[in-house]
Structures are given as structure tokens and as C-alpha cells.
């Protein structure tokens, strides 16, 4: 699939899809997105790209029933702590969005899905997490 683009640059589609963080080489703090310096140790860097684990656990979540116009509800928004470090926000997908089904501490695994193609035929790819 040559014509794919990740929804955000911390999702890498190089090989098996995975998340990448900017890691401060001085203190190990992890970030998503471009950095100017480290907010934890105050050093200007350098930062290196660190591949994050595909698995983690749900630290907190909400089941959105009343979404903003244009979005389909219900869906699950969650804070996921990845195994080995890194904390990320994403949807819990491929499972029923109900309080009976989504549990705190539940193990999850990274999953990707298509957000459709643009007018040039490029497919945007999003990530979420599904029960492991």
C-alpha cells in the first residue's frame, strides 16, 4: 500500500504499524510530536525516536454518547498506558462500547483502520486499541 498516510506522525506505517515517541536522551521522558526541549529535565535534547509497545492497559476511559456533530456515537475514548512506557490517548475499537464490556486495567493491543481516501487517492490510517 504505497498511498497511505498516518493520521498523526507518531503512528508509523513502516512495517507493522506501531507508535513512536520522542525520547529525551538525558532523562528518558517520552513525548509525542515535535520538541523544542525536555519539559522534565529542561535539557534542549537530543531526542531519539523510540518504538513503543503495541500492548498496554486502560488507565481511564469514557463512553461518549453525545458526540459533536459529524461524529458517530457511542464510542470509547481511553487513556492507555503502554507496556514498557508511554501513555497515549485513543479510541477502544472492535468491541461493544458499553460499561459492562470496557473495564479499567483491561489489556489492549494496537489496531489500525482506514479513515478513507483523499482526492488524490491517498488513504489515511488511524490507530485505536482493541481488547488483547
Amino acid at each position: 500500500m504505497a498511498n497511505q498516510i498516518p493520521v498523526v506522525d507518531y503512528l508509523s506505517l513502516d512495517g507493522a504499524p506501531h507508535l513512536e515517541a520522542q525520547e529525551c536522551e538525558n532523562c528518558g521522558a517520552l513525548y509525542f510530536g515535535r520538541r523544542n526541549a525536555c519539559a522534565k529535565c529542561f535539557k534542549p535534547g537530543p531526542f531519539k525516536v523510540r518504538r513503543l509497545a503495541d500492548t498496554g492497559t486502560i488507565r481511564g476511559f469514557s463512553i461518549i454518547q453525545r458526540a459533536v456533530p459529524g461524529l458517530t456515537a457511542p464510542y470509547v475514548s481511553a487513556l492507555v498506558d503502554l507496556d514498557g512506557g508511554g501513555s497515549v490517548k485513543g479510541n477502544i475499537i472492535n468491541t461493544e462500547p458499553s460499561p459492562e464490556n470496557i473495564k479499567l486495567g483491561m489489556p489492549v493491543r494496537l489496531a489500525t483502520y482506514s479513515l478513507g481516501t483523499d482526492d488524490d487517492g491517498t488513504e489515511a490510517v488511524a490507530f485505536g486499541f482493541q481488547p488483547a
Binding site: I5, P6, V7, V8, D9, Y10, F32, G33, R34, R59, G60, F61, S62, I64, R66, A67, V68, L71, Y75, S77, A78, L79, K89, G90, N91, L104, L115, A124, A126, F127
Partner: peptide, 26 residues
């Protein structure tokens, strides 16, 4: 973060009721 579109509802929700729900569930 090099996003190609608005990510509300795609990468979780930034809406206040959801954000404070997540904080409490944590």
C-alpha cells in the same frame, strides 16, 4: 504531531465531559 485531519473522536475525545470522565475513571 503532523495530523492530517482534526482528530476529535478519532484519537479519543477532547470534549470536556469525556476528559473529566477519564480523569475520574483513572
Amino acid at each position: 504531531t503532523g495530523s492530517v485531519m482534526p482528530t476529535e473522536g478519532v484519537l479519543g475525545s477532547g470534549m470536556m465531559p469525556a476528559v473529566f470522565a477519564e480523569i475520574a475513571m483513572e
